[in-house]
């Protein structure tokens, strides 16, 4: 399959489902059984995801997450720890076969191209953002979107966040700060380094609205023709298996 692109979502799932679905699509795409896909989703309940190489215990206050009912998941992509607020973030994933749709083979260039969909989506919402290599999107120097990519079996998977609203206090309760005494300072500096759509527009659009503009952003910036679809039976079967055997397993979560 090549040609057409499929849109999945906007939908809301728990953390292990979200990561399992991304990987299931990647695997099925690599076998040529699934089309190139854009997925838009949020996290219910709120979750913390950590990068492939991160140490869970170094990065996450596991007890605080348990107390607050926040999921924890390890991604198959590198990068840092992210707090995904169920009401404050839209996440996308783009799964495309290498060589398809003129996505550059060079990883750094491909970040720029894929992120242009997010930049365009933000522009459609009225937020002027720019791509900042390697993998960030900024508004007036403040980060509004973080992105992470992996390439496996000839397929690119890039997923990333769009911050709609942020509860930095909560974020710093859940993510580990090296020194408790500097927690307040960190929150203050995060306020200077991070921004949200709500802050930029002085009003908060619904996640649905943000997702719909991101979809349009990808269509326009990457010249995609997205057809709404759903998971194939095989993707669904594989995602269920990956959720159970990989993303929910302590072995995977505590891998490092």
């Amino acid at each position: 399959m090549s040609g057409g692109w499929r849109l999945i979502g906007f939908e809301s799932n728990d953390a292990s489902t979200n990561m399992a679905v991304d990987e299931a699509i990647l695997i099925c795409r690599s076998k040529g059984e699934s089309p190139n896909t854009l997925r838009l989703y949020s996290w219910e309940p709120s979750a913390v995801s950590i990068g492939f190489f991160q140490s869970l215990q170094d990065e996450v206050d596991i007890e605080a997450c348990r107390k607050e009912g926040v999921d924890i998941v390890r991604r198959i992509t590198g990068g840092g720890a992210v707090y995904h607020d169920s009401e404050g973030e839209v996440t996308y994933s783009l799964i495309v076969a290498e060589g398809d749709h003129n996505i550059p083979k060079d990883i750094l260039s491909s970040y720029r191209i894929i992120c242009s969909g997010i930049v365009k989506g933000l522009e459609l919402l009225g937020v002027k953002a720019t791509f900042q290599p390697v993998n960030d999107i900024l508004v007036n120097g403040r980060k509004i979107s973080g992105n992470a990519q992996t390439r496996r079996m000839g397929v690119i998977l890039q997923h990333g966040t769009v911050l709609v609203d942020a509860d930095l206090n909560r974020m710093f309760r859940l993510l580990k700060v090296s020194d408790e005494k500097i927690r307040d300072k960190m929150i203050k500096s995060a306020e200077e380094r991070v921004t949200t759509i709500r802050r930029e527009l002085s009003s908060k659009p619904s996640l649905q609205e943000v997702a719909s503009k991101i979809k349009m952003g990808f269509e326009q910036a990457l010249n995609l023709n997205l057809t709404p679809g759903r998971l194939t039976e095989e993707e669904f079967r594989l995602a269920t298996k990956l959720k159970r055997e990989k993303y929910s397993s302590l072995e995977w979560i505590f891998r490092r």
């Binding site: 190489f53 140490s55 992509t77």
Partner: peptide, 15 residues
Amino acid sequence: IQITGDFFTHPEETI
């Protein structure tokens, strides 16, 4: 020895 962090390697198994 264990190497951790928020970097990227492609492929990931390299580390």
